[in-house]
Simulated assay, not measured.
Amino acid sequence: MNDLALTYRNQGWWSEAEQLQVKVLERSKARLGEDHPHTLTHMNNLALTYRNQGQWSEAEQLQVKVLERSKARLGEDHPDTLRSMNNLAGTYRNQGQWLEAEQLQIKVLERREARLGEDHPDTLTSMNNLALTYWNQGQWSEAEQLQVKVLERSKAKLGEDHPHTLTHMNNLALTYWNQGQWSEAEQLQVKESGSVVRGKAATGQVLEGRKARLGEDHPHTLTHTNNLAHTYGDQGWWSEAEQLQVKVLERCEVRLGEDYPDTLSSINDLAHTYRNQGQWSEAEQLQVKVLERRKARLGEDHPDTLTSMNNLTLIYGNQGQWSEAEQLQVKVLEGSKARLGEDYQDTLSSMNNLVSAWPARLGTVIF
């Protein structure tokens, strides 16, 4: 039953996986007890399925239990305990609880380095996860240092063409890109795709491979379709990007549901493409949907909600709706200060956006 559930999960059939995993967990508790290693494994599997559906609260509750029991039964340095700690950190990160995620990931990394060595795949995974948490907080330098190490060790251990190495290469390229290091980013992206990433062929080949292997509706295929759309958008090919994004959105809504995080990201991406084509009304309708759903699902102060709020302010500004833009920008700034701190880059960007709105509203120009 567990194996079938994992097969469902690997195909993105979250609901089917969840139903089976709930049964497995209940029966394992009754037969083996709540603290048995098999029961903890089933609990962890169900938590990951909840997380894949964006049910952060349910996932967190189970993962906290697993971690506490694993510590008591197996010890803090046992591989299963470290895996549980890493999974809980991932759920914290999904909820924008960066500090909690960072603290756990540092522990996992230190213990895995001591227990398994610096080049072990699990150690590299921990290093990569910590780098992503730094990345999400705008700590580009810290993220870059770790990602460079991960990439070098992954190349040496797994080879340049291993999927994990290519993933690490892509992550480092994004960090370079966020720091404006275009040349370094491009060099990595060329290597990662096998040809220039800005061309259609390279990204398209990856997408066709995913379609053939997993099917058109698999979450991984949808992710690569969305990545290809981003590549088109980067080159100003808005029409091509829009066609792909409409497909991704339709399939996400059917397969994952309207409120699933990937669906909301797809809506946001399509709205961005509409905005770049000057289709303000279409963009606004989509951004309002994303904002409402993220508020309901994540809360008003979650970083993703604040991002949606900020995106909507840009559309209002593009249409000269200064009052609506200003009201949202004030909320974004207050929420960013409270959640992320006054010196965080998103807070500073929000502050800048609010200031920039005034000259446009008053018909003046800042030099």
Rank of each mutant, 00 (worst) to 15 (best):
L109R: 08
L130P: 06
K107N: 15
L82V: 07
H78N: 13
E110A: 06
I106Q: 09
A89H: 13
E76M: 12
H120R: 02
L74M: 12
T125V: 13
D80V: 00
H78L: 05
S126Q: 00
L116D: 00
D119Y: 10
K107T: 03
T125Y: 04
R112S: 15
Q139P: 14
T123V: 10
E102F: 03
R111Q: 09
L124I: 06
E102D: 04
D80C: 11
W135L: 03
N87Q: 13
L109V: 04
Y92S: 10
G75N: 12
E100T: 05
R83V: 11
A114S: 11
W140E: 02
Q137K: 07
T125A: 13
T91V: 15
A143Q: 01
A114D: 05
R111A: 05
E110W: 10
A89Q: 14
Q139C: 02
E142Y: 07
L88R: 14
P121I: 01
R73M: 10
Q97I: 00
L116G: 03
R73Y: 07
S84D: 14
L109E: 06
A114R: 05
L104M: 11
N136C: 03
L124K: 05
T123M: 08
L88N: 13
M85Y: 03
Q137M: 04
G75Q: 09
W98Q: 11
E110T: 01
P79M: 06
G138C: 10
L104P: 13
M127D: 04
A89M: 14
G117I: 03
E100K: 13
R73P: 15
T81C: 10
G96Q: 11
L130E: 04
G75R: 01
W98T: 10
R83S: 15
A72S: 14
Y92D: 07
Q105M: 05
T81V: 11
G90C: 14
D80P: 12
D122C: 01
W135A: 00
S141D: 07
R73C: 11
A143H: 07
Q95I: 04
N128E: 02
H120P: 01
A89Y: 08
N128R: 06
E76G: 10
L99K: 08
E113W: 04
I106H: 06
D122E: 14
Q139H: 15
E100Y: 08
Q139K: 15
T123D: 01
P79D: 08
L104A: 08
A143F: 01
P121C: 05
T81Q: 11
Q95N: 08
G138F: 11
S84E: 07
E118W: 08
N129A: 06
E118F: 00
Q105V: 00
L109D: 03
Q95Y: 12
G117T: 03
R69Q: 14
D119K: 13
G138H: 05
R115C: 05
L130I: 04
N129V: 03
T133W: 08
Q139S: 12
W135R: 15
L130H: 10
E110S: 06
A143V: 02
L109I: 02
